[in-house]
């Protein structure tokens, strides 16, 4: 097969559109043909360039909220029933749900609604932070630089430590505004992945063990410890993110626990 005939197949190969036999043919051809190897390299280069330019756009929060409410039958008018709960309890049947609602009642429903909103805000904060120049307000790998930076900006002292020895290197800190209050964001890097740990004083004093959830392709872990609310978010897989949380929890000297 000539190079001219090969050319469209190279793109098909690059786009994973060819069957195994054809793919092997291309791989063999590319080994011996500089022009086609060059073409393949250019395709890869272009793909990397486009991704590096971050052409992806996150839908504005306003649009997302609007989309989430679209087609909602009467949710706003029946605050006790939230669809998340309905979904969770669906398999147990409405009777079980109604029974449960008697003792869990409204607070859980409200908690679910507001937590969903907070999770959305965390995702938005994370996505914003990944855009050019927004990752850190204070860029430093030193906890003694990052921690004091927060004083006067937030009304609490976040626990800041570099976990480089565990594979999570501190990159810096950032001010966030979540759930209508200032929050501290600590930025960590694990290989190519950024982890944002966002924290602020919890409304409820009771500790809560970590819960994981996935939103818009990101993994999130949420927990409450010693009066602080924590949200860790990353495109890391769930297991690695949970590992990060374990490292943080095991290392953290938190107020009232030391």
């Amino acid at each position: 097969m000539s190079c001219a005939e090969m050319r469209p197949l190279i793109e098909g190969y690059f786009d994973h559109e060819l069957d195994l036999v054809r793919s092997l043919e291309i791989e063999k051809h590319v080994e011996s043909c500089t022009a086609c190897a060059e073409h393949l390299k250019h395709l890869q280069g272009l793909n990397l360039t486009l991704h590096a330019a971050r052409l992806h756009e996150a839908a504005p929060e306003r649009l997302r909220r609007w989309a989430e409410s679209l087609g909602e039958p009467r949710a706003k008018r029946v605050p006790v029933f939230h669809w998340d709960m309905f979904h969770q309890w669906g398999t147990l049947g409405v009777a079980a749900f109604a029974g449960a609602a008697l003792w869990i009642g409204v607070p859980l429903a409200e908690r679910t609604v507001s937590e969903r909103q907070v999770a959305d805000e965390i995702v938005s904060a994370h996505v914003r932070s990944l855009m050019a120049g927004h990752l850190t307000d204070v860029a430093s790998t030193h906890q003694h630089t990052v921690k004091p930076w927060f004083s006067g900006k937030v009304d609490f002292a976040p626990f800041v430590r570099d976990f480089d020895e565990f594979g999570f290197a501190l990159k810096g800190g950032r001010l966030e505004y979540v759930s209508q209050r200032p929050a501290a964001a600590l930025v960590y890097q694990h290989h190519q992945h950024i982890v944002n740990l966002i924290l602020w004083p919890a409304a409820a004093a009771r500790d809560r063990s970590s819960e994981t959830l996935t939103r818009r392709g990101y993994n999130l872990v949420h927990w409450i410890r010693s009066g602080m609310t924590y949200w860790a978010i990353s495109d890391l897989n769930s297991r690695d993110l949970q590992q990060f949380v374990q490292i943080f929890e095991s290392q953290a000297v938190l107020p009232g626990t030391s």
Partner: peptide, 11 residues
């Protein structure tokens, strides 16, 4: 059906 693809749609 639609919410997971909202960013893709916006992009």
């Amino acid at each position: 059906a639609v919410l997971p693809h909202l960013d893709a749609a916006y992009t």
